[in-house]
Amino acid sequence: MTKTSDHFFIIRAFAALLILIACALVPIAHADVSSEEVPVSKIQKVYKIQIELDGVVISATLDDNPTVRDFIARLPLTLKLKDYASTEKIGFLPDKLTTQGAPSGSTPAVGDISYYAPWANLAIYYKDFAYSAELVKLGRVSSGIERLNFSGEKHATISLIHSN
Rank of each mutant, 00 (worst) to 15 (best):
K3M: 12
T4N: 15
S5Q: 13
D6P: 00
D6K: 14
H7W: 09
R12A: 14
A13M: 12
F14L: 13
L17S: 10
L20P: 01
V26Y: 11
V26E: 03
I28N: 12
A29Y: 14
D32F: 11
D32Q: 15
V33E: 15
S34I: 15
S35F: 02
V38Y: 04
Q44A: 12
Q44E: 13
K45G: 06
Y47R: 10
K48S: 09
I49L: 02
V56L: 11
V57A: 01
I58D: 01
I58L: 02
I58W: 00
S59V: 00
T61D: 09
D64N: 14
D70H: 10
R74I: 03
L75Q: 09
L77D: 05
K80P: 00
L81H: 04
Y84K: 08
A85C: 06
A85E: 14
T87L: 03
K89Y: 01
K89L: 03
K89T: 04
K89F: 01
I90H: 04
K96V: 12
G101E: 13
A102V: 01
A102F: 01
A102L: 01
S104P: 09
S106Q: 07
T107I: 08
A109W: 00
I113S: 01
A117R: 08
P118M: 02
P118K: 02
A120M: 11
L122E: 14
I124R: 07
K127W: 02
K127A: 08
D128R: 01
F129I: 05
A130M: 10
S132W: 09
A133L: 04
A133W: 00
L135D: 13
L138M: 13
R140I: 13
R140Q: 14
S143A: 15
S143F: 04
S151Y: 05
E153M: 13
K154A: 10
L160C: 05
I161G: 00
H162M: 11
S163D: 09
